[in-house]
């Protein structure tokens, strides 16, 4: 299986602090992967590098069939290339309706003049409805996003991610602050999405990860500490040391 994303030998430091230290990571085209690690392990910085927010000091990030390097691309170009990201805290446009939020994310031409001349069409509307259905917000479409509950905002953000139709989803703590039922639904959405695309989930909650039932990568001090099934990594003594702090 050829890889969708290959990160190799990446390092980045802030004022002398090595946030990412010679990290290498790969993910296939239709794969669900969980990344765990204690605070400060470099999970968010890792995502920042892939999405172009942070430029690494060294290393390579190769993406897609044509193996393009992401390091020279702007955030918006990376997003257009098919990498979507959900943030730790739900960041939806609270002053706009759910429909507007989703519509903005829908896969369409992104240029200012394309958008200015954009005409609503049945196909787009159908996709929007389908996504709303999947994230369970069909009834909320005309509400302001700011009025939604925390969990609904998380779903809306995942919905916006799906609307972009990305090939790689980076999802930061999707289950934070959710009720057990909401978590179940979230798991469903994510595993569903991973059937056709690559999904990377960063999570603290072991229970949630167990439910995802996928390969797990453990990050520590900016590098990969262990990789494998959840049971495999949790039995790894190094991982136990890191988590228990010994």
């Amino acid at each position: 299986m050829s890889m969708l994303l290959e990160v190799s030998g990446v390092s980045v430091s802030f004022d002398g602090f090595k946030a990412i230290n010679n990290l290498s990571f790969q993910i296939g085209k239709a794969e669900l992967r969980a990344i765990i690690g204690p605070n400060g392990a470099g999970k968010t910085t890792f995502m920042d590098i892939i999405t172009g927010k942070t430029r690494p000091d060294e290393g390579r990030v190769i993406y897609g069939d044509r193996s393009v390097s992401l390091l020279k691309m702007s955030e918006s170009r990376i997003a257009q290339a098919g990498i979507g990201r959900k943030f730790q805290r739900p960041t939806v446009f609270e002053a706009q309706t759910v429909r507007e939020n989703l519509s903005m994310a829908l896969r369409n031409k992104r240029g200012p003049f394309d958008v200015l001349m954009y005409k609503r069409n049945a196909e787009g509307a159908a996709r929007l409805e389908a996504i709303a259905e999947e994230i369970g917000l069909t009834d909320q479409l005309i509400r302001q996003a700011g009025e939604l509950s925390h969990g609904q905002k998380q779903w809306l953000e995942i919905g916006m991610l799906l609307a972009q139709d990305p090939r790689l989803l980076l999802v930061d703590e999707p289950a934070a602050g959710m009720t057990p039922e909401e978590r179940e639904h979230t798991t469903e959405i994510l595993t569903n999405a991973a059937k056709t695309r690559a999904v990377v989930v960063v999570e603290h909650d072991m229970e949630f990860i167990r439910r995802l039932d996928c390969k797990v990568t453990v990050l520590h001090e900016g590098a990969v500490l262990a990789e494998g099934s959840l049971d495999h990594v949790t039995s790894n003594p190094e991982v136990i040391d890191v988590y228990l702090g010994r």
Binding site: E75, F93, Q96, Q164
Partner: peptide, 22 residues
Amino acid sequence: KFGSVIRGIRDDEARVRFLGYN
């Protein structure tokens, strides 16, 4: 949609960028 995007830029520029808008 254009209005939606520019209001998005006003409220959270980085988020709009990650949606793929320049």
